[in-house]
Design a protein around this nucleic acid. Sequence first.
DNA 1: ATTAATTTTCATTATTTACTGAAAGTTCAA
DNA 2: TTGAACTTTCAGTAAATAATGAAAATTAAT
Lengths: 167, 167
Amino acid sequence: MKLEEAKQQFINSWGAFGTQWGINRTMAQIHALLLISTVPITQDDIMEQLTISRGNVNMNIRDLIGWGLVERVIVSGERKEYFTADKNIWKVATQIIKERKKRELDPMLKLLGQLENIEDKKEEGAAEFLTVVNDIKKLGGQADTLLDIMIKAEENKFISGVLKIFK
Amino acid sequence: MKLEEAKQQFINSWGAFGTQWGINRTMAQIHALLLISTVPITQDDIMEQLTISRGNVNMNIRDLIGWGLVERVIVSGERKEYFTADKNIWKVATQIIKERKKRELDPMLKLLGQLENIEDKKEEGAAEFLTVVNDIKKLGGQADTLLDIMIKAEENKFISGVLKIFK
DNA sequence: ATTAATTTTCATTATTTACTGAAAGTTCAA
DNA sequence: TTGAACTTTCAGTAAATAATGAAAATTAAT
């Protein structure tokens, strides 16, 4: 395989994988493109490389910045804005974890907490319902602590630490 | 909050969370409904509870069975098929991990392996590209082992084991 | 074997989600 | 302070995804 071909393949596949994870295809592709760009690039570069519209690039870049995965870069002597993505994959992963935790896990735990406050806990079927809700809450809480540990730990410390016990 | 209200809330929210994770809303709702049903229920029950069509129920139930989250149950003396979901949340979680690993992580690692086989590794920018690809592959590989450990371990063994080192 | 009950399929339709492009907004050099 | 370079917004449109419902297939009781 040629390098250019491999890069294209990487971008496309990254987009496809993104889709499966509930991330929009273009956003994932832009992130992929930035990951394998050795230098910061502009909105026009992205438009050209992925053959998508200016508006599309703009909105998705903003989202990526919102996720903390992409940064604006100022190139002196240049009017245009340039963008880069952090190439440290462990950092990318922890950043994604951090955001998803905030956007999804935390609200879910909050909801489950509310659902436990039903009026008549003696009612037919209430016990079973509460058990399920509480079990999910417990599991979610443990996932939460676990992910916090991952975010704080260094890559090697975390992975090798866990492997140490269980392998 | 009344029990019925809480159940409805649970089903709806579960559907919304599913959407964020790339799982279709209805499938998540059906799973939620089955999770909080104390007894096995039929396709007609699901149609009625969620006010959705027969075809929709049927296809999503089959998907859920394909994910190993739902089972057909035969009720003696009854012509209709009944369905249940495993209520053990840890098992539900490991089952989902197992499936997503198979459907998503494994193919991704395979792809990344292929991308490392580029022809001219001395080419301009090849080194940087290979570094990113290899880093992702390494992280993916570690996630893979980690998830395998989770699948094999008992809930308490796994969580408390990890907490023991890092807390 | 017939038929009534039930499940499955899938072409069509509806809904949701993403993208475009042009207009409005901003920034900054002259 | 004007206007060219550039960025942002968003109404309209396109594409992707999910749901319907009726017909076909299957199942099992008589």
